[in-house]
Computed example of a mutant assay.
Amino acid sequence: MNISMSSLTFISIILTIIVYLGARWLSIRVLSPFTTPVLTATIVIILALHLMGISYEQYTPAKEWMTFLLGPATVALAVPMYHNRDVIMEKLFPALFGLIIGTISTIISAVWLSKALGLSDTIQATSTVKAVTTPVAIEAVLLVGGDPSLAAAFVIIAGLFGAILAPLILTITKISDPFSRGLGIGTVSHVIGTSQAVKEGPIQGAVSSMAMGCAAILTSIILPWLYPIIQL
Rank of each mutant, 00 (worst) to 15 (best):
E57T: 12
T171L: 12
A76L: 03
Q196R: 15
A41K: 07
A215K: 01
L21E: 15
L96T: 00
L39N: 05
Q58A: 11
V30H: 15
S27H: 15
L99A: 04
E90L: 05
I107Y: 10
E139M: 13
V129K: 06
L119H: 09
E139T: 14
L170H: 07
L150M: 15
P224M: 02
S7C: 01
S208G: 04
S209G: 10
S176K: 13
V38W: 02
T133R: 10
V79K: 12
I46M: 14
F97W: 11
D177N: 14
A76R: 06
L8A: 03
Y20F: 15
L218C: 01
K63I: 01
A48Q: 05
P33A: 08
I46P: 04
A76F: 05
P37A: 06
M210I: 08
A73H: 04
I157G: 07
T67Q: 13
T103P: 07
A76E: 05
L226I: 04
E64R: 02
V132F: 03
P148D: 10
I221R: 01
S7M: 10
F93W: 13
V132Q: 04
V44G: 10
L170Y: 07
T171M: 08
F179T: 02
S189E: 04
T106M: 15
V198N: 09
T122R: 12
G146P: 11
A23R: 06
T60L: 13
Q204D: 00
H83L: 07
P61T: 03
E90W: 00
I222P: 02
Y227D: 03
F161T: 07
A206V: 00
V191S: 14
L165G: 11
I192F: 05
I100F: 15
K115T: 13
P72D: 05
S180F: 01
M5I: 12
G182A: 05
A216E: 00
L142Y: 07
I11C: 11
T16R: 01
L168H: 08
G145L: 12
S55Y: 08
I43L: 14
T128A: 12
F161K: 01
A110D: 07
L51C: 07
S12V: 02
L119R: 08
L70Y: 02
I108V: 15
D86R: 12
F93S: 09
I172A: 13
Y227K: 04
A140Y: 06
Q124A: 10
L70I: 06
L92P: 11
V75A: 09
N2L: 11
P224N: 04
S180K: 06
T9S: 12
P167F: 01
V136Q: 11
M210Y: 07
F154A: 08
V144T: 13
P37F: 02
S55T: 14
V19Q: 12
A62S: 03
I138C: 13
H190F: 01
L47M: 10
T42K: 03
I203S: 01
V144E: 13
S209L: 00
W225N: 05
S4R: 07
K174M: 00
A73M: 07
V198S: 10
V30Q: 15
G118C: 08
Q231N: 14
L160E: 11
A216P: 00
L226K: 00
W65C: 00
K199T: 05
